[in-house]
Amino acid sequence: MAPLLEISGLRAYYGATEALHGLSFSIAQGGITTLLGANGAGKTTTLRAISGLVRREGSIVFDGRPIDKMATEDITRLGVAHVPEGRGTFVGLSVEENLKIASYGRRDKSGVRRDLDLVFTYFPRLKERIAQQAGTLSGGEQQMLAISRALMLGPRLMLLDEPSFGLAPLIVQEIFQIMRRINEEAGVSMLLVEQNAALALNLAENAYVLETGNVVMAGPSAELKNDEGIRKSYLGY
């Protein structure tokens, strides 16, 4: 089967500074892949390059279509949903309005309704908070909202940027379990960026390790997890 996302020779820039130096990797249809690496390795930049949020060069093919020249909103419409670092809550809007923002470009009202119900089966807590101003939610709830918002786009690929950041271990566990359910039940493929390597390797089937803008290691999670050398040098446990 052809990969869902295929990246080759990807370079990304912040102003004149090159942050990615020709990355190449691919993501299988239906799976969960994780990008690991230390601070500044280029994980977040990789996700932003895929979504067109930074200047980039190279080839990015999503589901057979090149998207490396496309604007963010068009990439989103193709089915790539980005859950940004730090959750990106629209604090001045209610939970419901946050969710409906995502359906902004969608014309199928019944589909939006269905996706809203689907979101609430995964995160019933958000339904209780539907009229609440999103800025008053707890960190965990805001992360749930961020994932839900992405789900409302009806995506085929979800880009998740450190969903565990700053959350209590129990909440993280809950959220990761739901992510697995979304992957299995809704068939949404995922590209997960994480600092918490142990957590990410347990969820994902495949992993890439980045170091200063280059892929230095790739393979099934199980292999990386058990390789002593890799564990010590890159994963820090």
Binding site: S51, L53, E73, T76, H82, V83, F90
Partner: peptide
Amino acid sequence: LAAGTMGID
């Protein structure tokens, strides 16, 4: 940034 990822131009 998040607004952009929600498909808003």
